[in-house]
Computed example of a mutant assay.
Amino acid sequence: MPDLALPVAEGGAAAAAGPLRLLIVTDAWTPQVNGVVRTLGIMASMLRAAGDTVEVIGPDRFFNLPMPGYREIRLAVVPPRKLARLVDAAMPCAVHIATEGPLGWAMRALCRRRGWPFTTAFHTKFAEYLQTRIGVPAAWSWRVLRHFHQPAEATMAATPSLRAELAARGFTKVRAWTRGVDLERFRPAPRDPFEGLARPIFLHAGRIAVEKNIAAFLALDLPGSKVVVGDGPQRAALMQRFPAAHFLGWRDNGVLARAYAGADVFVFPSRTDTFGLVLLEAMASGTPVAAFPVTGPLDVVTDPRAGVLHADLRTACLAALDCDRAAARTHAERFSWAASVAQFRGALAPFKP
């Protein structure tokens, strides 16, 4: 089955003669649990296995504080001299700045002072998140984001629709960097983890936060049961507001995989995600997807047999019950982490320290 990933672009690290010493600087890192952390962890692990040296500098290296309203996310207080010492110890010949937080800005400034090229990635629509959370006009945030990414040699983005949106907003040097799925971990399995719950089972998994729009799913008039796997700052409020829903908290990958496989439909109500790894994980487990036709689902759920995208989420949920579970698995098999790593490495900008 062919990958959906684009071919690796010419030049960059893919053309390097030998192993790289790559430095990844990210404000999103363990113990956070989200798609950015999972993606970066997989990139680092696979690049190391292929012979590269990969050092990750995250908030855990610094004194850090909880993000207001979102205690699970830690924001680093970044002394420039300490950052410089950590960077020098890593001796990188390529730098990737993954996020637009305090660490990302500090590393951007250091690279510019030293004349080092660097790459960035666009993982999160912070403009929409900030508008949803605290009412900051999206246009203001987009200007800041564009300024952050402008000096990068490449700004990596996961999907064609996101890359088109960034280009339309004035971002330059946008490069493709797709995502993959672990087809051994997430696969069709005996569908028994929800014994005692009325079917059909409509499942959502992920971070429980206002920007994920989970209330739009829980408010739907649907048959059977609604199940939410995950945790986050909105969990308590949603549990109180929707007492009939079943909140299971975090699940490790084995239990999560069985939850995906045991559901009848995976519901993805977010309107602001740039990809949605959970979409692939659900389909790899044989469970069709119901989602809005927005960035992320539009590029990931492209086979109508594997899921339904509709402006009315209830319509999508009910129609997805008739999707082909085997087709959902087959569709997920088209997404490869190997292709993702190749694209990522090929977009890097090596230099001589």
Rank of each mutant, 00 (worst) to 15 (best):
A198H: 12
K212F: 05
A176T: 03
E195F: 08
S161F: 09
P223T: 09
S161W: 08
E195D: 15
H147L: 12
L183V: 10
V174T: 08
P200E: 06
T159V: 15
L162V: 15
L166S: 02
L203G: 06
V144M: 14
A158T: 12
A158C: 11
V144H: 10
A164N: 03
A158G: 11
R175G: 01
T159C: 09
D192H: 11
R175K: 15
F202N: 01
D182Y: 02
I208S: 02
R207E: 10
A176S: 15
L162K: 04
N213Q: 12
T155A: 10
R191H: 09
N213C: 11
A158N: 12
W177L: 15
S141L: 13
K226F: 05
V181H: 01
V210G: 00
E153H: 12
R146S: 08
G170N: 07
A198K: 15
N213W: 06
G180D: 05
H147N: 10
A176M: 05
P151L: 11
E165V: 01
L218E: 06
A139E: 13
V136R: 01
F194Y: 14
G206C: 08
H149C: 02
L203R: 08
R185Q: 15
V136S: 00
K226H: 03
L145R: 04
A157Q: 07
T159K: 02
R191C: 07
A189H: 04
R207A: 05
T178Y: 04
R199F: 07
F171L: 06
A157G: 13
M156T: 10
A219H: 11
P190R: 07
W177P: 00
V210W: 11
E165H: 11
A152S: 15
M156E: 10
F194W: 11
I214S: 04
Q150D: 14
E195S: 14
L220S: 04
F194L: 09
G206L: 06
D182P: 04
F148I: 08
I201M: 07
E184F: 00
R143V: 10
F148K: 06
E184W: 00
L218V: 07
W142P: 02
H204P: 01
P137M: 13
F186E: 01
G170S: 12
G135R: 10
W142A: 07
A167S: 14
E184R: 13
V136H: 00
A154H: 02
R179F: 02
T155W: 06
L162G: 02
P151Y: 10
L222M: 11
A157C: 11
K173E: 09
K226Y: 05
F186C: 03
E184N: 14
A157Y: 04
L222Y: 14
G170A: 12
L218N: 03
L220I: 09
K173S: 13
V144I: 15
G170R: 08
G170M: 07
L183G: 10
A205W: 01
R175P: 00
P190S: 03
A209E: 14
R207W: 01
P137R: 13
A164M: 00
I208W: 03
G170H: 07
A219P: 07
N213I: 03
P200I: 01
A158S: 15
P137T: 12
W142F: 13
Q150G: 06
P200Q: 06
A138D: 10
R185F: 00
A138K: 12
G180T: 08
R146H: 13
A138V: 11
